[in-house]
Amino acid sequence: PDRPVQVGDVGFVRRGKFHRLFNALLPADDPSHELGVPEYHEPLVPNLLDHIDRGSLSSNNYCSAGVSVEADSDDFRQVSFRYERSRGAAVSSLPVAAQREDTLAQGDFGQWIVKHIGTWFAFARKLGLGIEQMEDVVLVTGCDRTRSWSNITFLGGQVDAQVTFGVKVEGPDTSINFQLSPELVRGAVISQGPEGTNLPENQCIFIRGFRVARSFWILPKHLKAAAGPSPDPSYDCDPGTELVSIPAVTKYRDPLHLLLDYVAEVRTTGLVSCLCYQQYARF
């Protein structure tokens, strides 16, 4: 994409891809607001001005429990993944590191979406994008971006499920190339990111954020936060809603968000690591 996912983006996830509507941190006349902004839009100004915490996610193979990995050290490195269980599993393979950004102002972000979800939802519906549930609207509080990636979904039920592909990363300009033969894919689906030289870090592989969900039980007088900060009681919010931190297991999740939900154990050696705390969304 021309504009990568950023902290403060408001949008929705469909078929594993995040679609941006506008950014809550930016003024209404920002050039990036090509779709416009909701009525009465005002930018979010966190109390902590320097609120972005940055880090990195190392180049590695992040796998569900039960997935075995074999890799050689050739110039065009061959990586094989095997899975023999029935439930299904997933792999996210990063040939180069990903850059992480998260806001430290979790409380401010949580209160802001609670305060403005009504106008945000009305704006999203007005655009005619098929957003019919308030729970579809997401405020991004963090994301991981990289240059390229490989994602594998093991369908389960096949005892000899396996995927093998080659990857080559070289040069100061970070050239990335993949080598994949269809006959080396059994019982799985694989998708891969861009190849080439001087690739920008605009491939968003994980997002974190808030959504506001309808509650189906009796709540206290003020909104109850199921995960995340408690909103300011002075905010006028619907008592039948709750603030939900994502990733989280809710009935409103797109099925493709389950890609990494199979991750259930930590492997501290070799190429396999645990990544069970992030929701999957990619460009």
Rank of each mutant, 00 (worst) to 15 (best):
Q162L: 13
E84I: 08
R85N: 15
V138S: 03
V91E: 02
V45R: 15
L129D: 04
A105L: 02
A90C: 08
V163G: 02
D108Y: 03
R82K: 14
F121M: 07
D29Q: 10
L49R: 13
S92I: 13
L94Q: 07
R87V: 10
S68R: 15
T146N: 00
Y62L: 11
N47L: 15
T153C: 12
Y62V: 05
R85D: 14
Y40E: 12
A97D: 14
E101D: 11
D144H: 15
G118W: 07
N47E: 15
F154W: 09
R85S: 14
G142I: 03
D75Q: 15
A122W: 04
Q158G: 09
D50Y: 08
D50T: 11
A97S: 15
Q106D: 08
R147T: 04
D30E: 05
Q162V: 14
R54E: 10
C63Y: 07
D108L: 02
R100K: 13
A124W: 03
E132R: 13
V159A: 14
F121Q: 07
E101V: 09
N47V: 15
V69A: 05
I131S: 04
L44Q: 00
E34Y: 12
W149E: 05
Q133W: 11
D160G: 08
Q158E: 11
G130M: 06
N61W: 12
L25R: 08
L127M: 10
V91Q: 03
S73K: 11
N151L: 10
P27W: 01
V114P: 04
D160R: 11
P46G: 04
V137G: 00
Y40S: 12
F81E: 02
D102V: 11
